[in-house]
Design a binder for these strands. Structure first.
Length: 429
DNA sequence: CAGGGACCTCGTCT
DNA sequence: AAGACGAGGTCCC
Protein backbone atom coordinates (compact mmCIF):
# COMPACT_ATOMS: atom_id res chain seq x y z
CA UNK A 1 0.00 0.00 0.00
CA UNK A 2 1.17 3.46 -0.77
CA UNK A 3 1.85 5.89 1.99
CA UNK A 4 -1.56 7.42 1.54
CA UNK A 5 -2.88 10.56 3.13
CA UNK A 6 -2.93 11.50 6.76
CA UNK A 7 -5.12 13.08 9.36
CA UNK A 8 -3.72 14.61 12.56
CA UNK A 9 -4.99 12.60 15.53
CA UNK A 10 -3.35 12.14 18.91
CA UNK A 11 -3.18 8.81 20.71
CA UNK A 12 -5.14 10.36 23.55
CA UNK A 13 -8.05 10.83 21.17
CA UNK A 14 -7.84 7.53 19.32
CA UNK A 15 -5.96 4.28 19.47
CA UNK A 16 -7.02 2.08 16.59
CA UNK A 17 -5.01 -0.89 17.82
CA UNK A 18 -7.41 -1.05 20.76
CA UNK A 19 -10.62 0.49 19.45
CA UNK A 20 -10.83 -1.73 16.38
CA UNK A 21 -10.31 -4.89 18.42
CA UNK A 22 -12.33 -4.31 21.58
CA UNK A 23 -15.60 -5.77 20.38
CA UNK A 24 -17.33 -2.76 18.85
CA UNK A 25 -16.71 -3.58 15.22
CA UNK A 26 -16.08 -7.08 13.98
CA UNK A 27 -14.89 -6.57 10.40
CA UNK A 28 -11.46 -4.97 10.67
CA UNK A 29 -8.69 -7.29 9.56
CA UNK A 30 -5.03 -6.76 10.24
CA UNK A 31 -2.60 -7.47 7.41
CA UNK A 32 1.14 -6.96 7.44
CA UNK A 33 3.13 -5.94 4.42
CA UNK A 34 6.90 -5.64 4.42
CA UNK A 35 6.73 -2.12 5.77
CA UNK A 36 3.95 -1.87 8.22
CA UNK A 37 0.82 -3.25 9.82
CA UNK A 38 -2.39 -2.03 8.31
CA UNK A 39 -5.99 -2.55 9.31
CA UNK A 40 -8.55 -2.90 6.58
CA UNK A 41 -12.33 -2.72 6.45
CA UNK A 42 -14.97 -1.96 3.87
CA UNK A 43 -17.00 1.10 4.83
CA UNK A 44 -19.73 2.56 2.64
CA UNK A 45 -18.71 0.67 -0.45
CA UNK A 46 -15.00 1.38 -0.33
CA UNK A 47 -12.01 -0.35 1.20
CA UNK A 48 -10.44 1.73 3.96
CA UNK A 49 -6.87 0.93 5.03
CA UNK A 50 -5.41 2.50 8.14
CA UNK A 51 -2.27 2.75 10.16
CA UNK A 52 -1.43 5.09 13.00
CA UNK A 53 1.57 6.66 14.65
CA UNK A 54 1.79 9.02 17.60
CA UNK A 55 0.61 12.04 15.65
CA UNK A 56 -1.38 10.90 12.64
CA UNK A 57 -3.87 8.49 11.21
CA UNK A 58 -2.70 7.36 7.77
CA UNK A 59 -5.43 6.29 5.45
CA UNK A 60 -5.89 4.93 1.98
CA UNK A 61 -9.18 4.36 0.20
CA UNK A 62 -9.83 1.91 -2.61
CA UNK A 63 -13.05 1.88 -4.57
CA UNK A 64 -14.20 -1.19 -6.49
CA UNK A 65 -12.64 -1.39 -9.94
CA UNK A 66 -16.11 -1.41 -11.42
CA UNK A 67 -18.01 1.47 -9.83
CA UNK A 68 -21.51 0.70 -8.58
CA UNK A 69 -22.99 3.28 -10.95
CA UNK A 70 -21.99 1.80 -14.29
CA UNK A 71 -24.34 4.07 -16.19
CA UNK A 72 -22.34 7.15 -15.42
CA UNK A 73 -19.65 7.35 -18.09
CA UNK A 74 -18.02 10.43 -16.65
CA UNK A 75 -17.64 8.72 -13.30
CA UNK A 76 -13.87 8.82 -13.15
CA UNK A 77 -13.48 12.39 -14.24
CA UNK A 78 -16.26 13.97 -12.24
CA UNK A 79 -14.68 13.20 -8.92
CA UNK A 80 -11.43 15.03 -8.71
CA UNK A 81 -8.93 14.02 -6.11
CA UNK A 82 -9.56 16.89 -3.66
CA UNK A 83 -13.29 16.16 -3.69
CA UNK A 84 -12.72 12.52 -3.10
CA UNK A 85 -10.27 13.23 -0.31
CA UNK A 86 -12.73 15.53 1.43
CA UNK A 87 -15.24 12.74 1.22
CA UNK A 88 -12.78 10.26 2.74
CA UNK A 89 -11.91 12.64 5.56
CA UNK A 90 -15.58 13.10 6.30
CA UNK A 91 -16.01 9.35 6.43
CA UNK A 92 -13.16 8.92 8.90
CA UNK A 93 -14.27 11.82 11.08
CA UNK A 94 -17.76 10.42 11.14
CA UNK A 95 -16.76 6.79 11.73
CA UNK A 96 -14.42 7.63 14.57
CA UNK A 97 -16.75 10.36 15.89
CA UNK A 98 -13.79 12.71 16.03
CA UNK A 99 -15.89 15.77 16.83
CA UNK A 100 -16.18 14.45 20.38
CA UNK A 101 -13.19 15.42 22.51
CA UNK A 102 -12.18 12.20 24.20
CA UNK A 103 -9.43 13.74 26.33
CA UNK A 104 -11.91 16.21 27.80
CA UNK A 105 -14.20 13.32 28.72
CA UNK A 106 -11.34 11.32 30.26
CA UNK A 107 -10.45 14.30 32.41
CA UNK A 108 -13.98 14.67 33.67
CA UNK A 109 -14.35 10.98 34.46
CA UNK A 110 -10.88 10.85 36.03
CA UNK A 111 -11.78 13.73 38.30
CA UNK A 112 -15.13 12.30 39.34
CA UNK A 113 -14.55 8.54 39.51
CA UNK A 114 -11.63 6.92 41.34
CA UNK A 115 -12.10 3.59 39.61
CA UNK A 116 -12.00 5.20 36.18
CA UNK A 117 -8.90 7.10 37.20
CA UNK A 118 -7.30 3.80 38.12
CA UNK A 119 -8.09 1.95 34.89
CA UNK A 120 -7.98 4.67 32.27
CA UNK A 121 -4.22 5.33 32.15
CA UNK A 122 -3.70 1.85 30.72
CA UNK A 123 -6.44 2.33 28.18
CA UNK A 124 -6.18 5.71 26.55
CA UNK A 125 -7.80 6.60 23.28
CA UNK A 126 -10.77 4.28 23.55
CA UNK A 127 -13.77 5.89 21.92
CA UNK A 128 -17.16 4.81 20.65
CA UNK A 129 -17.31 4.24 16.92
CA UNK A 130 -20.15 5.76 14.95
CA UNK A 131 -21.05 2.73 12.89
CA UNK A 132 -23.77 1.84 10.46
CA UNK A 133 -26.91 1.07 12.45
CA UNK A 134 -27.96 -1.97 10.44
CA UNK A 135 -24.52 -3.55 10.65
CA UNK A 136 -24.38 -2.86 14.37
CA UNK A 137 -27.79 -4.42 14.83
CA UNK A 138 -26.94 -7.66 13.04
CA UNK A 139 -23.48 -7.88 14.56
CA UNK A 140 -24.81 -7.69 18.09
CA UNK A 141 -27.64 -10.12 17.38
CA UNK A 142 -24.73 -12.45 16.64
CA UNK A 143 -23.09 -11.58 19.95
CA UNK A 144 -25.47 -13.37 22.30
CA UNK A 145 -23.78 -16.18 24.23
CA UNK A 146 -20.79 -15.73 22.00
CA UNK A 147 -17.21 -14.50 21.95
CA UNK A 148 -15.53 -11.78 19.91
CA UNK A 149 -13.53 -14.22 17.83
CA UNK A 150 -16.54 -16.20 16.67
CA UNK A 151 -18.70 -13.08 16.22
CA UNK A 152 -16.03 -11.77 13.85
CA UNK A 153 -16.04 -15.03 11.90
CA UNK A 154 -19.81 -14.96 11.63
CA UNK A 155 -19.93 -11.36 10.45
CA UNK A 156 -17.24 -12.14 7.91
CA UNK A 157 -19.33 -15.03 6.58
CA UNK A 158 -22.34 -12.73 6.26
CA UNK A 159 -20.31 -10.33 4.13
CA UNK A 160 -18.72 -13.08 2.05
CA UNK A 161 -22.02 -14.76 1.20
CA UNK A 162 -24.45 -11.86 1.08
CA UNK A 163 -22.46 -8.65 0.68
CA UNK A 164 -21.03 -7.06 -2.49
CA UNK A 165 -17.40 -7.71 -3.36
CA UNK A 166 -15.23 -4.63 -3.10
CA UNK A 167 -11.55 -5.46 -3.29
CA UNK A 168 -8.73 -7.90 -2.58
CA UNK A 169 -5.69 -7.26 -0.40
CA UNK A 170 -2.87 -9.82 -0.23
CA UNK A 171 -5.21 -12.53 -1.43
CA UNK A 172 -7.85 -11.62 1.16
CA UNK A 173 -11.33 -10.88 -0.15
CA UNK A 174 -13.13 -7.82 1.15
CA UNK A 175 -16.90 -7.53 0.85
CA UNK A 176 -19.20 -4.85 2.16
CA UNK A 177 -21.83 -5.61 4.79
CA UNK A 178 -25.05 -7.00 3.25
CA UNK A 179 -28.24 -4.97 3.08
CA UNK A 180 -31.42 -6.02 4.93
CA UNK A 181 -32.89 -6.98 1.55
CA UNK A 182 -30.00 -9.33 0.86
CA UNK A 183 -30.65 -11.13 4.14
CA UNK A 184 -34.38 -11.45 3.51
CA UNK A 185 -35.63 -14.64 1.94
CA UNK A 186 -36.89 -18.15 2.64
CA UNK A 187 -33.50 -19.84 2.43
CA UNK A 188 -31.52 -17.42 4.61
CA UNK A 189 -32.19 -19.04 7.99
CA UNK A 190 -31.30 -22.59 6.94
CA UNK A 191 -28.22 -21.36 5.09
CA UNK A 192 -27.01 -19.40 8.08
CA UNK A 193 -27.50 -22.47 10.24
CA UNK A 194 -25.32 -24.41 7.86
CA UNK A 195 -22.76 -21.67 8.19
CA UNK A 196 -22.69 -22.21 11.95
CA UNK A 197 -24.81 -19.34 13.22
CA UNK A 198 -26.81 -21.61 15.49
CA UNK A 199 -30.04 -20.20 16.90
CA UNK A 200 -29.03 -16.70 15.79
CA UNK A 201 -29.80 -17.66 12.19
CA UNK A 202 -33.49 -17.33 12.90
CA UNK A 203 -33.08 -13.97 14.64
CA UNK A 204 -31.11 -12.47 11.74
CA UNK A 205 -33.48 -13.71 9.05
CA UNK A 206 -36.51 -12.59 11.02
CA UNK A 207 -35.10 -9.15 11.85
CA UNK A 208 -34.07 -8.60 8.22
CA UNK A 209 -37.59 -9.50 7.14
CA UNK A 210 -39.19 -7.15 9.67
CA UNK A 211 -36.97 -4.28 8.61
CA UNK A 212 -37.60 -4.71 4.89
CA UNK A 213 -41.27 -5.67 5.01
CA UNK A 214 -42.81 -4.25 8.16
CA UNK A 215 -40.98 -0.98 8.64
CA UNK A 216 -40.87 2.11 6.42
CA UNK A 217 -37.75 2.85 4.45
CA UNK A 218 -35.15 4.56 6.61
CA UNK A 219 -36.88 3.49 9.82
CA UNK A 220 -33.69 2.39 11.56
CA UNK A 221 -31.86 5.64 10.89
CA UNK A 222 -34.91 7.62 12.00
CA UNK A 223 -34.05 6.41 15.50
CA UNK A 224 -30.71 8.21 15.43
CA UNK A 225 -29.69 10.89 17.85
CA UNK A 226 -30.34 14.11 15.88
CA UNK A 227 -27.19 15.61 17.37
CA UNK A 228 -25.13 12.81 15.87
CA UNK A 229 -26.29 12.50 12.27
CA UNK A 230 -25.30 9.65 9.98
CA UNK A 231 -22.73 10.29 7.30
CA UNK A 232 -24.88 10.78 4.24
CA UNK A 233 -27.96 11.74 6.18
CA UNK A 234 -30.53 14.03 4.70
CA UNK A 235 -31.23 16.82 7.09
CA UNK A 236 -34.72 16.13 8.22
CA UNK A 237 -35.42 19.47 9.84
CA UNK A 238 -35.90 20.92 6.40
CA UNK A 239 -38.30 18.23 5.28
CA UNK A 240 -41.42 19.16 7.16
CA UNK A 241 -42.66 21.22 10.03
CA UNK A 242 -41.50 18.67 12.57
CA UNK A 243 -44.40 16.35 12.01
CA UNK A 244 -42.43 13.49 13.47
CA UNK A 245 -41.56 13.81 17.13
CA UNK A 246 -37.89 14.16 17.84
CA UNK A 247 -36.49 10.74 18.71
CA UNK A 248 -35.14 10.00 22.18
CA UNK A 249 -32.80 7.34 23.53
CA UNK A 250 -35.64 5.67 25.42
CA UNK A 251 -37.83 5.61 22.34
CA UNK A 252 -35.03 4.23 20.19
CA UNK A 253 -34.31 1.43 22.66
CA UNK A 254 -37.97 0.60 22.91
CA UNK A 255 -38.37 0.49 19.14
CA UNK A 256 -35.41 -1.85 18.74
CA UNK A 257 -36.87 -4.28 21.29
CA UNK A 258 -39.58 -5.06 18.75
CA UNK A 259 -37.06 -6.87 16.56
CA UNK A 260 -36.15 -10.54 16.80
CA UNK A 261 -33.16 -11.49 18.88
CA UNK A 262 -32.94 -7.99 20.30
CA UNK A 263 -33.14 -7.63 24.07
CA UNK A 264 -32.15 -4.65 26.19
CA UNK A 265 -28.43 -5.29 25.88
CA UNK A 266 -28.33 -5.60 22.10
CA UNK A 267 -30.69 -2.63 21.78
CA UNK A 268 -28.30 -0.53 23.86
CA UNK A 269 -25.34 -1.61 21.72
CA UNK A 270 -27.18 -0.41 18.63
CA UNK A 271 -28.22 2.82 20.38
CA UNK A 272 -24.66 3.55 21.49
CA UNK A 273 -22.56 2.46 18.51
CA UNK A 274 -25.05 2.65 15.66
CA UNK A 275 -27.42 5.46 16.52
CA UNK A 276 -25.28 7.99 18.37
CA UNK A 277 -26.94 7.75 21.81
CA UNK A 278 -23.92 8.31 24.05
CA UNK A 279 -25.87 7.75 27.27
CA UNK A 280 -26.73 4.16 26.39
CA UNK A 281 -24.89 1.71 28.65
CA UNK A 282 -25.05 -1.87 27.37
CA UNK A 283 -25.04 -4.08 30.46
CA UNK A 284 -23.47 -7.42 29.63
CA UNK A 285 -21.75 -9.94 31.85
CA UNK A 286 -18.62 -7.79 31.92
CA UNK A 287 -20.36 -4.55 32.83
CA UNK A 288 -22.49 -6.37 35.38
CA UNK A 289 -19.29 -7.76 36.86
CA UNK A 290 -17.72 -4.30 36.88
CA UNK A 291 -20.79 -2.79 38.52
CA UNK A 292 -20.67 -5.30 41.35
CA UNK A 293 -16.91 -5.56 41.79
CA UNK A 294 -15.85 -1.94 41.30
CA UNK A 295 -18.98 0.07 42.07
CA UNK A 296 -20.47 -1.90 44.91
CA UNK A 297 -23.67 -2.31 42.98
CA UNK A 298 -26.37 -4.50 44.49
CA UNK A 299 -24.74 -4.49 47.90
CA UNK A 300 -27.81 -6.05 49.43
CA UNK A 301 -28.87 -9.56 48.43
CA UNK A 302 -31.77 -8.09 46.52
CA UNK A 303 -30.28 -8.48 43.08
CA UNK A 304 -29.25 -12.02 42.42
CA UNK A 305 -30.29 -12.40 38.81
CA UNK A 306 -30.32 -9.93 35.98
CA UNK A 307 -33.82 -8.84 35.04
CA UNK A 308 -35.02 -5.80 33.17
CA UNK A 309 -35.40 -3.73 36.33
CA UNK A 310 -31.87 -4.55 37.46
CA UNK A 311 -30.62 -3.93 33.95
CA UNK A 312 -32.14 -0.45 33.87
CA UNK A 313 -30.88 0.30 37.37
CA UNK A 314 -27.30 -0.45 36.35
CA UNK A 315 -27.51 1.91 33.39
CA UNK A 316 -29.04 4.61 35.55
CA UNK A 317 -26.34 4.11 38.16
CA UNK A 318 -23.56 4.59 35.61
CA UNK A 319 -25.25 7.59 34.05
CA UNK A 320 -25.26 9.17 37.50
CA UNK A 321 -21.54 8.55 37.87
CA UNK A 322 -20.38 9.31 34.35
CA UNK A 323 -23.01 11.69 33.05
CA UNK A 324 -24.65 11.92 29.63
CA UNK A 325 -21.74 10.24 27.84
CA UNK A 326 -21.83 7.22 30.14
CA UNK A 327 -21.68 4.75 27.25
CA UNK A 328 -18.31 6.15 26.25
CA UNK A 329 -16.91 5.71 29.75
CA UNK A 330 -18.34 2.22 29.88
CA UNK A 331 -16.38 1.20 26.79
CA UNK A 332 -13.11 2.13 28.46
CA UNK A 333 -13.76 0.00 31.53
CA UNK A 334 -15.27 -2.76 29.43
CA UNK A 335 -12.12 -2.97 27.34
CA UNK A 336 -9.95 -2.88 30.45
CA UNK A 337 -11.95 -5.83 31.72
CA UNK A 338 -11.54 -7.97 28.59
CA UNK A 339 -9.33 -11.00 28.97
CA UNK A 340 -7.82 -10.39 25.56
CA UNK A 341 -6.45 -7.12 26.88
CA UNK A 342 -5.22 -8.50 30.19
CA UNK A 343 -1.61 -8.26 29.04
CA UNK A 344 -2.07 -4.64 28.07
CA UNK A 345 -3.72 -3.96 31.40
CA UNK A 346 -0.90 -5.41 33.48
CA UNK A 347 1.85 -4.02 31.28
CA UNK A 348 0.35 -0.58 31.38
CA UNK A 349 -0.26 -0.91 35.07
CA UNK A 350 3.45 -1.47 35.51
CA UNK A 351 4.16 1.51 33.34
CA UNK A 352 1.83 3.59 35.44
CA UNK A 353 3.60 2.50 38.58
CA UNK A 354 6.85 3.61 37.05
CA UNK A 355 5.15 6.80 36.07
CA UNK A 356 4.10 7.31 39.63
CA UNK A 357 7.66 6.70 40.71
CA UNK A 358 8.90 9.24 38.22
CA UNK A 359 9.34 12.75 39.33
CA UNK A 360 7.16 15.24 37.64
CA UNK A 361 8.83 18.38 38.77
CA UNK A 362 6.75 21.02 40.43
CA UNK A 363 3.49 19.21 40.84
CA UNK A 364 4.41 15.64 41.63
CA UNK A 365 7.34 14.44 43.64
CA UNK A 366 8.26 11.02 44.88
CA UNK A 367 10.15 10.50 48.07
CA UNK A 368 10.61 7.10 49.62
CA UNK A 369 7.34 5.60 48.52
CA UNK A 370 5.45 8.80 48.87
CA UNK A 371 3.91 10.78 46.06
CA UNK A 372 3.73 14.44 46.68
CA UNK A 373 1.16 16.37 44.75
CA UNK A 374 1.48 20.02 45.57
CA UNK A 375 1.03 20.04 49.32
CA UNK A 376 -0.60 16.67 49.70
CA UNK A 377 1.44 13.58 50.36
CA UNK A 378 0.09 10.17 49.39
CA UNK A 379 1.51 6.76 50.05
CA UNK A 380 2.38 4.85 46.90
CA UNK A 381 0.81 1.71 48.31
CA UNK A 382 -2.47 3.50 48.04
CA UNK A 383 -2.38 2.82 44.35
CA UNK A 384 -5.74 4.30 43.48
CA UNK A 385 -4.96 7.57 45.12
CA UNK A 386 -1.45 7.84 43.77
CA UNK A 387 -2.40 7.14 40.17
CA UNK A 388 -5.31 9.45 40.47
CA UNK A 389 -3.19 12.16 41.97
CA UNK A 390 -0.77 11.99 39.08
CA UNK A 391 -3.64 12.22 36.62
CA UNK A 392 -5.08 15.22 38.35
CA UNK A 393 -1.71 16.84 38.58
CA UNK A 394 -1.07 16.37 34.89
CA UNK A 395 -4.45 17.77 34.02
CA UNK A 396 -3.67 20.80 36.10
CA UNK A 397 -0.29 21.04 34.48
CA UNK A 398 -1.80 21.17 31.05
CA UNK A 399 -3.92 23.98 32.37
CA UNK A 400 -7.08 22.26 31.31
CA UNK A 401 -10.07 24.39 31.90
CA UNK A 402 -12.62 21.90 33.05
CA UNK A 403 -15.09 24.59 33.89
CA UNK A 404 -15.14 25.86 30.36
CA UNK A 405 -15.44 22.44 28.81
CA UNK A 406 -18.31 21.86 26.42
CA UNK A 407 -19.03 18.58 28.14
CA UNK A 408 -21.67 19.05 30.83
CA UNK A 409 -20.62 18.64 34.40
CA UNK A 410 -21.22 15.33 36.06
CA UNK A 411 -23.77 15.04 38.75
CA UNK A 412 -22.37 14.35 42.16
CA UNK A 413 -23.29 10.70 42.27
CA UNK A 414 -19.80 9.34 42.65
CA UNK A 415 -17.71 9.28 45.70
CA UNK A 416 -16.38 12.63 46.66
CA UNK A 417 -12.97 11.45 47.68
CA UNK A 418 -11.39 13.93 45.37
CA UNK A 419 -7.80 14.66 45.93
CA UNK A 420 -7.93 18.01 47.52
CA UNK A 421 -5.65 20.43 45.90
CA UNK A 422 -5.04 21.81 49.28
CA UNK A 423 -4.22 25.41 49.75
CA UNK A 424 -4.24 26.10 46.10
CA UNK A 425 -4.39 29.79 45.92
CA UNK A 426 -7.05 30.92 43.61
CA UNK A 427 -6.30 34.34 42.33
CA UNK A 428 -9.60 36.16 42.51
CA UNK A 429 -11.65 33.06 43.18
C1' DC B 1 -45.48 -10.72 36.09
C1' DA B 2 -41.14 -12.82 37.49
C1' DG B 3 -37.81 -16.24 37.00
C1' DG B 4 -35.58 -20.26 35.52
C1' DG B 5 -34.32 -23.19 31.36
C1' DA B 6 -33.31 -23.99 26.67
C1' DC B 7 -30.78 -22.58 22.90
C1' DC B 8 -26.21 -23.32 18.59
C1' DT B 9 -21.35 -23.59 18.58
C1' DC B 10 -16.75 -23.74 19.95
C1' DG B 11 -12.50 -23.08 22.76
C1' DT B 12 -10.70 -23.99 27.31
C1' DC B 13 -10.43 -26.18 31.47
C1' DT B 14 -10.38 -30.31 34.51
C1' DA C 1 -10.46 -38.12 27.32
C1' DA C 2 -15.38 -37.04 27.99
C1' DG C 3 -17.96 -33.53 30.23
C1' DA C 4 -18.66 -29.00 32.14
C1' DC C 5 -18.29 -24.21 31.49
C1' DG C 6 -18.61 -19.72 29.55
C1' DA C 7 -18.63 -16.57 25.76
C1' DG C 8 -20.46 -8.73 25.45
C1' DG C 9 -28.30 -12.75 25.74
C1' DT C 10 -32.89 -13.60 24.17
C1' DC C 11 -37.03 -16.19 23.96
C1' DC C 12 -40.40 -18.93 25.95
C1' DC C 13 -43.22 -20.91 29.30
Amino acid sequence: MAQGRKLPVSLAELRIDTVLRCGQSFRWRQLDDEWFTHRHCVLKGRLVSLKQDTSHLYYNVTWPSKPPTTSSKSQSTVKTEPCRDEDDVRLLQSYFALSHSLSAMYELWTASDTNFAKRAPAFAGIRILNQDAWETLVSFICSSNNNISRISQMVHKLCLHYGPYISTVQGELFHDFPTPEALTGPKVESHLRELGFGYRAKYIAETARIITEERPLGWLDSLRNPECPALGAIKQEESDEKTATSPTYAAAQEALLGLSGVGPKVADCVCLMGLGWAEAVPVDTHVWQIAQRDYNFGKGAKTKTMNKATYDAVGLHFRKIWGPQAGWAQSVLFTANLKSFAAQASAAKLAVKEEVAKVEEGLVKVEEGLVKVEDEVIKVEDEDKAIRAVSVARAAKRKVKLEDSAVPKLEGGGETTLVRRSKRKKASG
